[in-house]
């Protein structure tokens, strides 16, 4: 009756994800060591490029744990970036604009969460409407690309260009100059958010409630959990995390445009799935999702370093990976059912 080892299928899935990342990354290092892939900076660049995506994926993981989905995140990022860019262009302080964006995130998430939690509308439909709304609103604010420059906001510009040096892992470049590896502030934001989400999911009542609801919403309600409220909070967190991600995104791109972050929701969902989060809810954690993001980032990075492969290859590789992972997941599920 007792299981033989402590290891269950979900832990194995997480280990597979981490192992895959290591294999991919090591492969990249070996194949492209002459082009500098093995430098620490390559890894840090993956973090920098994907800092926004890490934030979004944290939020999405929470929503997916409750067996929901949020496809409005890409469009919300575009809207947030546009608001940041336009606001700063018209002379508003960067901090004020950031606060505004966060408040928008909370309000937007609360509304979507209310529709899903209290009115029990399908999350796909609700967030699809949210997606169209945000994308449309971005164009209403401004149809052109708006840049954030040193002139529009010195403060934001400084943040974007700030380097946080890492005291190890440097190298000498061709000219014999010592290159100090660095990260950007956006990476710090993303990693803090990751840590926060991890602790929240593991050690708070709210965090466990997300799992309970994803496991069996009826039972969760029977056990006295406020299912409606918890669901609403999940969508609120998703939108807030997404808005924080938008700030990271703006720090990286220094612009707002209608077509920004198109399809980002799909990157986030695929990262979470590769990281072992089940779309059916109740299973997964942000560490897995983080490695999911890293795997996607590594694939893009390898394709970029290669230089000859068409830029559509990362998509095909991600598709292949997703396919492999969902097959592994269902094989595990089948094995478990058979055991019973």
């Amino acid at each position: 009756m007792k299981t033989k080892s402590k290891m269950n299928g979900h832990t194995i899935l997480l280990l597979i994800t981490i192992g895959l990342f290591i294999v991919l990354y090591a492969g990249g290092c070996i194949a492209y060591s002459s082009r500098g892939f093995s430098h620490l900076q390559t890894f840090l660049n993956i973090l920098i490029t994907n800092s926004g995506l890490i934030c979004v994926t944290c939020g999405l993981t929470v929503v997916m744990l409750t067996a929901g989905i949020d496809i409005s995140v890409g469009a919300l990022i575009a809207m947030d970036c546009m608001i940041l860019a336009v606001g700063m262009r018209s002379g508003h302080n960067a901090i004020v604009m950031i606060l505004i964006v966060l408040v928008i995130g909370i309000a937007f998430g609360m509304f979507q969460g209310f529709l899903v939690g209290y009115l029990e509308i399908q999350p796909f439909i609700v967030t699809m409407a949210g997606m169209f709304f945000c994308r449309g609103m971005t164009a209403v604010i401004c149809t052109e690309q708006v840049s954030i420059t040193e002139k529009t906001s010195k403060l934001f510009y400084d943040w974007a260009n700030a380097k946080i040096n890492i005291p190890f892992g440097g190298y000498l470049n061709n000219k014999g100059k010592y290159m100090v590896p660095y990260i950007r502030p956006s990476v710090v934001i993303a990693l803090l958010l990751l840590l926060f989400t991890y602790l929240m999911l593991k050690y708070t009542k709210l965090g466990r409630a997300f799992y309970a609801i994803g496991g069996n919403a009826v039972s969760a309600a029977m056990m006295g959990l406020n299912v409606k409220k918890v669901k609403m909070v999940a969508y609120m967190l998703s939108s807030i995390f997404c808005s924080i991600g938008a700030i990271c995104y703006a720090l990286n791109t220094m612009a707002g445009s209608v077509s920004q972050a198109t399809g980002l929701e799909m990157d986030a969902i695929s990262s979470a799935v590769i990281g072992g989060t089940l779309l059916t809810g109740g299973v997964g954690n942000v560490i897995g999702s983080f490695f999911g993001v890293l795997i996607n980032g590594t694939i893009s990075s390898i394709v970029k370093t290669n230089g000859k492969l068409a830029s559509s290859w990362p998509n095909i590789l991600t598709a292949a990976l997703l396919f492999v992972f969902i097959v592994i997941q269902s094989v595990f599920a089948m094995m478990r059912n058979r055991k019973k």
Binding site: Y211, G214, G215, N216, S219, A220, M222, M223, G282
Partner: peptide, 14 residues
């Protein structure tokens, strides 16, 4: 009426 994806202890105390 319990959550299969949580531990026995969590199901007792959630």
């Amino acid at each position: 009426n319990l959550c299969p994806n949580l531990s026995v202890a969590e199901n007792l105390f959630i």
